[in-house]
């Protein structure tokens, strides 16, 4: 994918996000690929607060806000309603953070993916609950310092490794699951494009984990946004008994 070919149209701009917010970059890039024919679900969190807080209506596609645990559930409802009205060409997009995806929202996501609904899901993984001020999530990597990781006397760092969400989703035998980073925009947007194109009769859901650090993250190994550890893992449809 060449950057010249990506649309000029801005579907998300003028948010109230912190200057340099990685999540907004991830969302803006994704919307450039998904285009105007998209309906988005955002749970309570930074992304909703900075783009859909009246009067700052910064998103220029339909946006449904929902509670924290149920981004994927909200997606399911939209998919069903659009299908029954014959509007299956519309892409339904769910965007939630690592907490809203891997912790409180994993039941809803697992359910929606298992039902084989047709949508694109982006987990904006900044490796902690950043909207509430930096508490640990199951996606917080080993060694990261958060406000809720007491491991011993005067020690505040995460002593458990990061949960491997992409493999969890791949275990649902979905046709596409990938992990990408906004540090590599072309690959990231290519992943989104692939996810969007897996559609139609196959009924194929997708999960994308975009690692994009929150600018407020306090981390023992604080990383430059450009040099973020980058893993690209694409999992094609697995045979029923297949292993990754």
């Amino acid at each position: 994918m060449r950057l010249q070919d990506v649309t000029q149209e801005e579907l998300l701009y003028g948010t109230m996000a912190c200057a340099g917010c990685g999540g907004i970059i991830a969302l803006r890039m994704a919307l450039k690929v998904l285009g105007k024919n998209t309906v988005m679900v955002l749970p309570a969190g930074c992304m909703m607060a900075v783009s859909g807080f009246f009067p700052q209506m910064a998103v220029n596609i339909p946006l449904v806000s929902t509670a924290f645990p149920c981004t994927a559930s909200a997606v399911s409802g939209l998919v069903a309603a659009l299908k029954v009205q014959g509007k299956e060409d519309i892409t339904v997009l769910g965007v939630a953070g690592d907490g809203g995806t891997a912790d409180i929202g994993i039941q809803a996501l697992s359910g929606a993916v298992e039902r084989g609904e047709n949508f694109v899901y982006i987990c904006y993984d900044n490796e902690a609950y950043m909207n509430t001020g930096g508490q640990r999530s199951s996606e917080t990597p080993y060694g990261a310092r958060t406000t809720t990781t007491p491991v011993g006397r005067n020690q505040m760092w995460e002593d458990k490794p990061k949960k491997d969400l992409v493999r969890i989703m791949a275990a649902h035998n979905i046709p596409y699951a990938a992990r990408a980073s906004i540090s590599h925009p072309r690959e990231y947007m290519e992943n989104i494009r692939k996810a969007k194109e897996i559609k139609g009769t196959e009924k194929s859901p997708f999960l994308e984990t975009g690692i994009s650090q929150c600018i407020n993250m306090r981390c023992n190994f604080r990383r430059n946004k450009r040099k973020i550890c980058w893993v690209s893992l694409e999992i094609k449809k697995q045979p029923q008994s297949g292993r990754i």
């Binding site: 950057l3 000029q8 701009y13 948010t15 200057a19 340099g20 917010c21 946004k225």
Partner: peptide, 27 residues
Amino acid sequence: VFCPEGMIKRQEKCVEISYDFCKGCGI
């Protein structure tokens, strides 16, 4: 592509910066 605010405009020869919503993040 990296501007979080979409404040950089693509032009023929070189880009152009618009300042309406630019927060000065420096990315």
